[in-house]
C-alpha cells in the first residue's frame, strides 16, 4: 500500500509538471508573453524592467525554468488590476469558493442519493419515471439560466432570499466564512442550490444505475434467501456496493464544482475565485489567470490522489490486491 501511494505521488508530481509545461506554452508561446506579463499601461522603463525580471530575452528553456522557479516560490507576479501578488488574491478568495462548492455537493448528495436509490429500487413506479425525467431536465437546464430564474422567483417575486454577495462573514481557520452567520447562510442558499442542480442529476442517475447493477446480483438474492429484511439488504448490501462509484464521482465532481462555480459566482456576485478569474480574463489580468490555472491543477491533482486513496479504503478487493 505504501509503495502504491508513493507511486501515485510520483504520478501526481508528473501531472503537475506536465501542466506547467502546457500553461507555460500557452502563455509564453501561443500568447505574446510581453503582452501577457506587462501591464499595457506600463512605460518603457517598466517594460524593460519586467522583461529583464522574467528573462523574456532569454531562450525558451531558460524562461521555463524561471517560470518554474517562480511557481516554486509561489510568485506568479502582481495583479495588474489590484497591484498585489496574484497568489494572495486567489488564496483570499478560496474560502468563498470552497464554501459554495461544499454546500452544493452536500445538497447534491442529500437530494440525489435517496432519489436515485428510490428510482433504482422501484423503476416501474410513476414517481420514479417522474424523477428520471426530472433528472434529464437537470442535465439540460443551463446552470446560468437556472440561476437567473432562481433570482427572479426567490428574490424578485417572492423577496425571500438575497441575490448577491456573501452577506456577513466570520473568521475561522484563517478564512472568512458565510455559513457561520444566519444571514450569510441565507446568501449561500440560492447559489449553492444553483450549483448543485447539475450534480444532483448526476448523482441521482449514477445511484440509480448502480442500484440496478447491484440488485440482480446473486449475492442480493442470497441475502434474501438468508431471510434478511429488505431494509437491511438495501442499507447494507446495496449501499455498501454503491459507495465505491458514488465516492469516486463525488470526489471527481467536487473539482468540477469548483470549476463550474465560475458561472454561479458570476451570477450571484459571489466573491470567490471563479468571479475573480472571469474578471481577470475580461481585464486581461494575466498573472491572476496563470495563478488560478496552476491552483486548479494543484487542486485536481490533490483531489485525484485523495479519491484513489479513498477508493483503496472502500473496496477490500483493491486494498488487498495492492498489499500483495
Amino acid at each position: 500500500m505504501v509503495t502504491s501511494i508513493i507511486r501515485r505521488l510520483f504520478q501526481a508530481l508528473f501531472v503537475i509538471l506536465a501542466m506547467t509545461v502546457i500553461v507555460f506554452i500557452g502563455v509564453s508561446v501561443i500568447g505574446n508573453p510581453v503582452d501577457i506579463l506587462i501591464n499595457p499601461d506600463a512605460n518603457q522603463v517598466e517594460r524593460a524592467r519586467v522583461i529583464a525580471h522574467y528573462g523574456l530575452d532569454e531562450p525558451l528553456w531558460k524562461q521555463y525554468f524561471i517560470f518554474l522557479r517562480g511557481l516554486a516560490q509561489g510568485d506568479f507576479g502582481d495583479s495588474f488590476v489590484y497591484g498585489r501578488p496574484a497568489l494572495g488574491l486567489i488564496l483570499e478568495r478560496l474560502p468563498a469558493t470552497l464554501e459554495l462548492a461544499i454546500a452544493a455537493l452536500g445538497i447534491a448528495i442529500v437530494i440525489g442519493l435517496p432519489l436515485g436509490l428510490y428510482a433504482g429500487l422501484y423503476p416501474s413506479r410513476i414517481s420514479s419515471r417522474i424523477i428520471m425525467t426530472g433528472s434529464i431536465l437537470g442535465f439540460s437546464l443551463p446552470t446560468f439560466w437556472v440561476g437567473l430564474m432562481l433570482i427572479m422567483i426567490f428574490s424578485v417575486e417572492l423577496g425571500w432570499l438575497p441575490t448577491n454577495g456573501r452577506g456577513p462573514t466570520l473568521e475561522f481557520l484563517g478564512g472568512q466564512w458565510s455559513f457561520l452567520t444566519s444571514d450569510g447562510l441565507r446568501h449561500l442558499l440560492l447559489p449553492a442550490f444553483n450549483l448543485a442542480l447539475f450534480k444532483t442529476s448526476l448523482i441521482l442517475r449514477l445511484t440509480r444505475a448502480g442500484v440496478q447493477e447491484v440488485l440482480p446480483q446473486d449475492y442480493i438474492k442470497f441475502a434474501r434467501a438468508k431471510g434478511l429484511r429488505e431494509r437491511r439488504i438495501i442499507a447494507v448490501h446495496v449501499l455498501k456496493n454503491l459507495m465505491i462509484p458514488v465516492v469516486t464521482i463525488v470526489g471527481l465532481e467536487f473539482g468540477s464544482l469548483i470549476a463550474f462555480s465560475v458561472v454561479t459566482e458570476s451570477i450571484f456576485a459571489w466573491p470567490g475565485m471563479g468571479k475573480l478569474i472571469i474578471d481577470s480574463i475580461n481585464l486581461l489580468d494575466r498573472p491572476v489567470i496563470v495563478a488560478y490555472l496552476m491552483m486548479m491543477v494543484l487542486l485536481f491533482v490533490v483531489l485525484n490522489f485523495v479519491i484513489d486513496t479513498c477508493y483503496t479504503i472502500l473496496d477490500p478487493r483493491v486494498r488487498l490486491d495492492s498489499k500483495a
Partner: peptide, 19 residues
C-alpha cells in the same frame, strides 16, 4: 427463508457480497 428453508446457490464466487 433462511430459518426453516435455506438455499445454496450455484456459483460461490457470486453468492457472497464482495464488500
Amino acid at each position: 427463508r433462511g430459518k426453516r428453508i435455506a438455499m445454496v446457490f450455484q456459483d460461490p464466487m457470486m453468492t457472497l457480497n464482495p464488500v
